[in-house]
């Protein structure tokens, strides 16, 4: 067999390419093997409400702990005082991949800091 003719630059590019490809394949193999079949498992966290010029905003963090992707999620945040619903905020998230986190806000006209906030995910579909 003929000897491979390459200068150092080409060997360097080959080296970088080989490392990249092997690293990617290795990572995919690892994450594929360690991945279960758990359906979407959605956690909704609320941040600290803030007063803005036009309204009150509440940061929402949505985390998918499952191994499958959820699409078209609808998040609901209810503001309650003494168990009575005062207002309701909603948030749509088009796409929440496995083990991914998305952030957003819901807004209220009244001050939510004096009330209780309850958040839950209403539903989602398979992508």
């Amino acid at each position: 067999m003929r000897k491979v003719q390459k200068n150092w630059l080409e060997w360097a590019v080959f080296g970088v390419g080989l490392v990249l490809v092997l690293a990617v394949l290795g990572y995919l193999l690892y994450s594929g093997a360690s991945m279960g079949n758990e359906p979407p498992n959605i956690e909704v966290r609320l941040g600290t409400p803030e007063q803005k010029q036009f309204n009150f905003i509440v940061p929402v963090t949505v985390v998918n702990h499952g191994d499958e992707t959820a699409a078209s999620l609808r998040i609901e945040v209810v503001m309650e005082t003494n168990g009575e619903e005062q207002a309701r905020g909603e948030l749509d998230i088009p796409f929440l991949p496995r083990h991914a986190t998305r952030e957003g806000w819901v807004t209220f006209e009244q001050d939510p800091r004096t009330s209780q906030l309850k958040a839950r995910v209403l539903g989602y579909q398979k992508p």
Binding site: E10, V13, F14, V16, G17, L20, V21, S31, R98, H99
Partner: peptide, 28 residues
């Protein structure tokens, strides 16, 4: 192998510039 590597680099760079690869995304 070189071409695959260059492909990964270019795709990574362009997707980063397009804002399709961000720090908030998970590694997967």
């Amino acid at each position: 192998v070189e071409e695959l590597g260059i492909g990964l680099l270019i795709a990574g760079l362009v997707l980063f510039l397009l804002g399709r690869v961000t720090a908030e995304m998970s590694a997967m």
